[in-house]
Computed example of a mutant assay.
Amino acid sequence: MKKIFLCCSAGMSTSMLVKKMEQAAADRGLEVEIAAIAMSGFDEAIEAYDVCLLGPQVKFKLADFQAQAAELNKKVEAIDPMSYGMMNGEKVLDQALSLLEA
């Protein structure tokens, strides 16, 4: 099972997006675990999850988090702002899955 986490400042705005991503995954019959985790929980989460997507409000941490994740051979990317703003669970799920395949 693939494990994806969305990282934002407090973990609240992304929890709505997580629900939409879970619905999109269920519609496709995909088994994924998706969580919203506050930026302060990144260190622990990157060890437990396969990939991380950052919410727009923490995009400034992208380079730091990518470097940290690279040590574990994992990927971190920023969520496309348009997909985030529209709470497009399909697109954000696709973005996470493409990182897992890359």
Rank of each mutant, 00 (worst) to 15 (best):
Q66C: 05
L17D: 01
L72K: 05
G55V: 07
L97Q: 11
C8T: 00
M86V: 07
D80I: 11
V76P: 01
V76R: 00
D94R: 08
A25R: 10
Y49W: 14
A25Y: 04
Q57F: 11
D50H: 14
E77Q: 15
E101C: 06
F42Y: 13
M87C: 15
S15V: 09
K91S: 12
K59E: 03
S9V: 11
C52V: 15
Q57K: 08
T14M: 02
G11S: 07
A25F: 11
M82A: 13
E44D: 15
N88F: 08
A63C: 07
K59V: 03
M21V: 05
L54V: 02
I79N: 05
V51W: 01
A102F: 10
E77S: 14
L72G: 03
A48Q: 15
A96Q: 08
A26Q: 15
M82G: 09
K2E: 14
M21T: 05
A35L: 14
K3Y: 06
V51N: 02
S9R: 09
F5H: 09
G89K: 10
A96L: 07
C7T: 13
E71Y: 08
M12W: 01
A24C: 07
K61I: 00
N88R: 13
D43M: 12
M21S: 11
D80H: 02
A70E: 09
V92G: 02
A26L: 14
V58K: 04
D27N: 12
D50W: 12
L53Y: 03
K19A: 15
M87P: 13
Q57H: 15
F65G: 01
A63Q: 13
A78Y: 10
V76M: 00
N73W: 07
A25I: 07
D64L: 14
K91V: 03
M21A: 05
M1W: 07
G41K: 05
Q68C: 08
S98K: 15
Q23S: 12
S15I: 04
A102N: 05
G89V: 01
I4F: 03
M12R: 03
N73F: 09
C8Y: 00
K74W: 07
I37M: 08
G89T: 04
I34C: 11
A26G: 09
C8W: 01
A38C: 08
A63G: 04
D43T: 12
A35S: 15
R28Q: 15
Q68L: 13
L17I: 04
G55S: 05
F60I: 04
K75Y: 04
M87S: 09
A45Y: 10
L54N: 02
L30G: 06
V51Y: 01
G11W: 06
I37K: 11
M39Q: 13
A25H: 03
I46W: 08
F42V: 01
K59N: 02
G85I: 01
L93C: 01
A70H: 02
A25K: 03
G41T: 05
E33H: 12
Q23P: 07
P81L: 12
M12I: 10
C8I: 01
V76Y: 00
A38K: 02
C8K: 00
L17N: 08
E71F: 08
